[in-house]
Every structure is written in C-alpha cells, then in structure tokens.
Simulated assay, not measured.
Amino acid sequence: MMRTIVALFSLLLLNCQKAADKPEIKDEVQKTESSQTEKGATHKSNPYCEEFFKKILLSSNLAALKNYKDIFIRIEDVSDDKIVLEVYVKNTDSDSPTGTRITENTVAWLHFLPDSDKLLDITSDAEDPMVLSFDKNILKESDYRNICGLSEKELQNKVSVKADVQCKEIKGTMLRGEECLISGASLEQVYEEMVQKSLVKDAQFLLKKIPKIATTHKINKNGIIDIKYMPGNNKIDIEMFYEGGITDIHLMKKGQNVKRQIIYNLD
C-alpha cells in the first residue's frame, strides 16, 4: 500500500515539472506580433498620398510589375526634395505555428523628385538610379503636393520654361540620350532649368549659370573627373568626363527655338 502511494506521488511530481518546463509558444508569437505592430505604428501613413503614387507606379515600366500580380506601395519619407517609396508584395505563410500569417517582402525602392517630376529606381544602385517612365497625365489629376504635405513650389526661385517641348530618343552603339527642341525660351533659361530640375545625371555638379568663357572644373566626385565648358555664339557645349565614359551636353539657339542634346557615352 505504501509503495503504491509513493509511486503515485512521484508520477504527479514528474507531470508538474514537465508542465512548468513547457514553452509558451503562443505567448512568444503574440509578443513578436505585438512588437511588429508597435514598430509599424511609428510610421505615419498617408493613404491618399500612397494611392496617388500607386497609380504612378502601375503606369510605369518598373520591371517588378511583370513579376508580381499584386503589388503594394508604402511611403517611407516625404520631403520637398524627394519622396521615398517602398514597393513590396505580401506572401501567405501557412506553416506558422499560430495558423496562416501574412509576410511582406520588399521588391523595389523608388525616389520621386517633385521638382523635376522624375521617378527613379534605386534598387540596384542608389548612386546610378534608373529613370523610369510613367504616365505624366496622372500628375494633372490631383494636387499631390498638397495631398502628400509638400510645401508650395517656390516659383520665384525656380526657372520654369513654359514652352512647347518636342523630344526624341537618341540610340547608338555604346551611347544613349535625348534631343529636344524647345520653343519660346532663351539659351540661359534652358540651361538653368536643366540644372535645377536635374534633367541630366549629376546636374548638381554643373555651374548654376552659363560661363562667359571656356573653362574646366575639377570635380573628382561620383566618378566625375572634371567638367569642360565651351561657350560660343548662341550655343554652349559641355563635356562631363567620367572614369567610365563621357556625358555630352549641347545647347544651341536657333531663331525662337533652343535645341538641347544630352548624350551618355560609355567606354
């Protein structure tokens, strides 16, 4: 009889010890999900701004659009200089210990530049982003600066060429670029707009005004060795020398029009 009581007591003690050692998986999952929720809550979402840029995104030639059926966008940062966009997809994880769980995977990072209305894909190389094309008619549908909380554009400090612009693409062996015919603008206006709106890569390293005499500026940044300016009669030619190529810029005044050529040459 005594042996039976001792055996039952030992079995009860062993079961209690196992129960105490059993990990609380559910509580750990809840803590993880709660922590993720709190982290996400620190980012102030603007659904109207995100909806606007999703339209922009879906009209673009971003490569990721061909690889995923459903794609989402999140605004990570907003400033007057640029809007940082995260492009991501959602995946269903059915192997989660708590049941079906939705996970997010980033597929692209984009920058939108309000001053030049450019959409840049910085996913592969932030120093040398890819300029994406998109339907610019969408920009006329809404006042995105107001929707996204940007300050009003300071037109008095910006050069705006209100003129008819006709452009065509330039393609060749080891080169690419664009030629535009701009009517109703001066040579100086076209040059200053090109610099201020970053219509050419690394425009921030160009002089703010057209120099009066030929000059060469040493840069040694962003892969640029130097920039050579060659002004002439109603024209200016600029050569941006890189470690891996040359960017040629040609501006020429013809009557009431200005022809602008930007050509990227690769070694």
Rank of each mutant, 00 (worst) to 15 (best):
130 M>V: 15
130 M>Y: 13
130 M>D: 08
131 V>Q: 06
131 V>D: 01
131 V>E: 11
132 L>D: 01
132 L>P: 01
132 L>V: 04
132 L>E: 07
132 L>T: 03
132 L>G: 05
133 S>C: 02
134 F>H: 03
134 F>T: 03
134 F>W: 01
134 F>Q: 02
134 F>A: 03
135 D>K: 07
136 K>T: 13
136 K>Q: 09
136 K>D: 13
136 K>Y: 05
136 K>C: 03
137 N>H: 02
137 N>V: 00
138 I>V: 13
138 I>G: 08
138 I>N: 05
139 L>R: 06
139 L>A: 08
140 K>C: 00
140 K>L: 08
140 K>A: 09
141 E>D: 10
141 E>A: 10
142 S>D: 13
142 S>E: 15
142 S>W: 04
143 D>F: 08
143 D>I: 10
143 D>V: 07
143 D>Y: 09
143 D>M: 11
143 D>L: 08
144 Y>S: 06
144 Y>F: 15
144 Y>I: 10
144 Y>E: 02
144 Y>P: 04
145 R>G: 06
145 R>Y: 03
145 R>P: 04
145 R>D: 01
146 N>D: 14
147 I>G: 06
147 I>N: 03
147 I>F: 04
147 I>A: 05
148 C>E: 04
148 C>Q: 03
149 G>Q: 09
149 G>K: 09
149 G>Y: 06
149 G>N: 04
150 L>N: 08
151 S>G: 14
151 S>H: 13
152 E>N: 15
153 K>L: 15
153 K>F: 12
154 E>I: 13
154 E>W: 05
154 E>S: 11
154 E>C: 06
154 E>G: 00
154 E>H: 07
155 L>I: 12
155 L>K: 12
156 Q>D: 11
156 Q>I: 11
156 Q>T: 09
157 N>S: 12
157 N>W: 11
157 N>D: 12
157 N>L: 11
157 N>V: 05
158 K>Y: 00
158 K>T: 01
159 V>Q: 03
160 S>T: 13
160 S>Y: 09
160 S>E: 12
160 S>K: 10
161 V>H: 04
161 V>S: 02
161 V>N: 05
161 V>K: 03
161 V>I: 11
162 K>L: 11
162 K>S: 10
162 K>D: 12
162 K>A: 03
163 A>K: 10
163 A>R: 07
164 D>P: 00
164 D>Y: 10
164 D>Q: 12
164 D>I: 11
165 V>N: 01
165 V>F: 03
165 V>E: 09
166 Q>G: 09
166 Q>Y: 12
167 C>W: 04
167 C>A: 13
167 C>T: 07
168 K>G: 15
168 K>W: 05
169 E>Q: 14
169 E>R: 14
169 E>N: 13
169 E>I: 14
169 E>A: 13
170 I>Y: 08
170 I>N: 04
170 I>L: 15
170 I>K: 13
171 K>L: 15
171 K>D: 11
171 K>G: 04
171 K>R: 15
172 G>P: 00
172 G>K: 07
172 G>W: 02
173 T>S: 12
173 T>R: 12
173 T>M: 12
173 T>P: 09
173 T>A: 15
174 M>D: 14
174 M>G: 02
174 M>I: 02
